[in-house]
């Protein structure tokens, strides 16, 4: 019996060229991610020379220009988390409700113009939404609720929700529309109403996509900078109500980075904030990925 030969296809020079090109693209994409993370963590580590990690994460006193300065990021971290949770409480029910409406209740005609309109909404620049928060929502809140300022957690949550709703609705509708017609028919044929079919079959079957949609929408709210810079109020404090002003991490970075001497303790503290943001965003994405995998099978 003769030796078995390997049957690998022979690549032409053109094919080899393509392979190299795509390999290079993959290396560039992964490499830049890796380098950014490395740079961020390296610059952030410089803070440890002036302040221990525990003080940075768990003290709420952020006085970067005092002498000596204090870099307690807790109020900023809480600020980011609070507006993200606030926006999720508004955006999740509205976004998923819109997704269900588009996928099952709107007729074909209505869907044909509502879906593109929703996707167009996702493209509105955040500065425009921030401006609406500043010029419309803030005075309204101030007048109606008789508050000292309308720039607060509620306003920021509302505007961030406006940003997240289109992506949640659009991704959510995609997930629901991908539930096979066969499976919906099976439910109807067993005497289920439309509502029972949506609730007991379509939503569970689309759960992986729906949870990904929500997490990605919220990830966007967490990383959003301009809106919170404009409408969250900018006070580095731990809020006691939704009418208090806050100063999320992103707003702090945007406001302070330009006025900081490179290499100073403040500079390193801002990078440390960036690293915290990076870790939180990464956690969100991993959560989205994990939910996606987890729900894939019944």
């Amino acid at each position: 019996m003769s030796e078995a030969r390997l049957l690998a296809p022979k690549l032409s020079p053109t094919e080899k060229g393509f392979r190299l090109f795509f390999l290079a693209a993959a290396i560039v994409a992964l490499g830049q991610m890796f380098l950014i993370a490395l740079f961020l963590l390296n610059e952030a580590a410089g803070l440890l020379a002036t302040a221990p990690l525990g003080d940075f994460l768990f003290s709420k006193d952020w006085y970067p220009t005092y002498e000596p300065p204090e870099f307690g990021a807790l109020a900023l971290i809480v600020g980011s988390v609070v507006v993200t949770i606030g926006s999720s409480l508004i955006a999740t029910p509205v976004g998923l409700g819109l997704a269900i409406y588009l996928a099952f209740l709107a007729g074909r005609r209505k869907r044909e113009w509502i879906k593109p309109a929703v996707e167009l909404m996702a493209g509105v620049p955040s500065v425009v939404l921030g401006f609406i928060g500043l010029a419309v929502v803030a005075p309204f809140l101030q007048d109606v609720l008789d508050l000292p300022t309308g720039l607060n957690v509620l306003n920021a949550s509302f505007i961030l929700a406006l940003m997240a709703i289109p992506s949640i609705a659009s991704l959510g509708e995609d997930a629901l529309a991908a539930v096979p017609r066969d499976v919906l028919d099976a439910s109807y044929a067993l005497g289920a109403t439309r509502w029972e079919t949506i609730w007991k079959v379509a939503i569970p079957a689309a759960m992986s996509g729906l949870s990904t949609a929500v997490i990605l929408g919220l990830g966007r709210a967490l990383g959003e900078t301009l809106v919170v810079l404009m409408v969250a109020g900018g006070a580095a404090q731990i809020p006691t109500s939704i009418f208090d002003s806050v100063r999320p991490m992103t707003a702090t970075l945007a406001a302070e980075m330009g006025e900081t001497a490179i290499g100073s303790a403040h500079y390193h503290a801002l990078f440390a904030l960036g690293a915290v943001l990076f870790v939180l965003t990464l956690a969100f994405n991993l959560l989205a990925y994990w939910l996606g995998v987890r729900w894939r099978r019944g």
């Binding site: 066969d182 499976v183 028919d185 099976a186 044929a189 067993l190 079957a205 099978r297």
Partner: peptide, 16 residues
């Protein structure tokens, strides 16, 4: 539909 059951062309169990 509770009185008249149906089995489809392709097996379509729920993902449960």
């Amino acid at each position: 539909r509770r009185l008249v059951g149906m089995v489809f062309q392709r097996p379509n169990p729920f993902p449960k």
